[in-house]
Design a protein around this nucleic acid. Structure first.
Lengths: 154, 154
DNA sequence: GTTCTACTTAACGTGAACGTCAAGAACCCT
DNA sequence: AGGGTTCTTGACGTTCACGTTAAGTAGAAC
């Protein structure tokens, strides 16, 4: 089904490589509550991750980078990271109540919409900047052509 | 001609307000060579700025923010800030040699193209992210509709 | 010419986001 | 079961991008 090789359980170093970060960063994110702290882990035991964790971390890093968010802002944005994880859990464990399922989906959509708002704003800001740079470029090229023209006569 | 009120010579505090930064930041940028250090200034004398300086600073801040550049990267990007200032100077002081003028313009265009490359890349990354978020959103909405449908029969 | 405010330099301080040891324990392999 | 690699926690260090404070000066306003 999936094109990426499912590697099953991963350790922190592999996750770091896959996401282009470092173990320290991952631990730090967990420390500040940006990443969940697998609840059943014995103290001193290795952290273990699944493919899904990698994707979520990649999403986080991308949001942080592309939106220029601080870790705190990022935390606010994806807030209820734990709550959301719980929701996903609840969803996948197959709650039967369709009303509840609908609630979960609505939460998720709201959440996505929050991100979309920020992304669209950024998109517009970038577009604005691009437009101005293109204008500058055109002005200069016009001047160059002007030079060419007046120079050709002399 | 211009819609903005030409205020003539500005002091650091005003420039800071106009650009939404602080005097400290402006001095810091000057310190690290990101902003030019008006050469004829007596030690201890106030820094003075023109409207053009404000715009250039705004451009810098925008590039930094929207592209997520460090001050060093920003420095590299607009490198030869001094050189460029000199070019502008030379241009406005009315050098006659059209070949020289053309050189100056070509430099400027190259420079703008460098910025455009980065901006476009960013634009694409943002677009990619936006696309994925929209896809996620659609998936969830589909699931909600699915719920609706199956729920309406029970 | 004083007065008041915004500026000057210099220096030290700060928060964010990790980096970098060190000592030891967990895991994988054979 | 032993050995090598990778991890664990804890603590301290570092870099970036300024903030803050202090002591004094410049410049605008009266």
């Amino acid at each position: 089904m999936s094109a990426v090789p499912e590697q099953g359980p991963l350790r922190i170093g592999e996750v770091a490589q896959l996401t282009g970060t470092t173990p320290r960063t991952i631990r730090y994110y967990e420390e500040i509550g940006l990443l969940p702290a697998a609840s059943g882990r014995e103290p001193g035991a290795h952290r273990i991750y699944a493919e899904g964790d990698v994707e979520r971390l990649q999403d986080l890093l991308r949001l942080k980078d592309l939106l220029g968010l601080s870790l705190e802002e990022l935390h606010d944005l994806i807030s209820a990271q734990d709550a959301r994880a719980a929701l996903r859990e609840e969803w996948h464990s197959g709650v039967e109540d369709p009303v509840r399922r609908r609630q979960i989906l609505e939460e998720a959509v709201t959440h996505i919409d929050n991100q979309l708002r920020l992304v669209r704003r950024r998109r517009d800001e970038i577009a604005q900047l691009e437009g101005e740079l293109n204008a500058k470029r055109r002005r200069n090229r016009d001047r160059m052509r002007e030079l060419q023209r007046s120079g050709a006569t002399g």
